[in-house]
Amino acid sequence: MSKYSMHLLVCGGTGCHASESDAIVCNLRDELEAKGLMDTVQVILTGCFGFCEKGPIVKVMPDNTFYVQVKPEDAQTIIEEHVIKGRKVTRLLYQDPVSKEMISDSKHMGFFKKQLRIVLRNCGFINPENIDEYIARDGYQALGKVLSEMTPEQVIKEVRDSGQRGRGGGGFPTGLKWEIASKNKADQKYVVCNADEGDPGAFMDRSVLEGDPHSVLEAMAICGYSIGASHGLIYIRAEYPLAIARLKIAIKQARNMVCWAIRFSAQSTVLILNFAMEQEHLYAVKKQH
């Protein structure tokens, strides 16, 4: 059980990263160290909160305070005022452009008010470089269930019945795609994840990869199981260095920790996953139940 009574979430997406969120993390930690609070307050670098225009963003939990345009030198004020004295730092709060009201909880901001996050549920909530936090949020449960309780046909039926569709312009039904792929006979099949994101001004793939990379790996492994592909490829652009770095970390952690996944070798921008799902291996997993 954690003995921390407060979490400071610092945005580590590309936008905030570029405006020195790393330095904010360092300064917050230094400040906590100096005040002897390292055991009570945890600083976490997360994925993107989605509000890059006002970055870098620091969120204080559990009171859900949302600080915008934080500078590294504000770290001291946040620790001294908010963490120690429990007073919010008003000048760092978000000001509603219409009502001019200072808003402290992001739930009440116009930008976030109507959002229901599904794909990005973990983005800005967990540390993307720590598989433990993903597992704590039910991560790899779906893969575990699929591998130990379902046949590939059942998985495909489940996906079909869910009505899931591709998120590209075509909106192709995912279940149908998997069914066609599974019926196709081949010596070797691959799951290919196109993380290139060519459309101008679209960054949701990058946000998922940077903020919740394990969810991509888990989904690829589920797909691999249901269509009979033992390998996966992620094609990702060199312009997304942070996403590549976090994916590599995720793959390494998953390989060390989750036995069904995932071997990996990297060549420039193409990451190759090996799901290690040879039949014997799968049966070995099943037998243990």
């Binding site: 449960q141 130990s148 997993v285």
Partner: peptide, 13 residues
């Protein structure tokens, strides 16, 4: 530690 079964994974979670 390695996770080798669904039960392990649930416990870990």
């Amino acid at each position: 530690s390695k996770i080798t079964s669904l039960a392990d994974l649930k416990k870990k979670r």
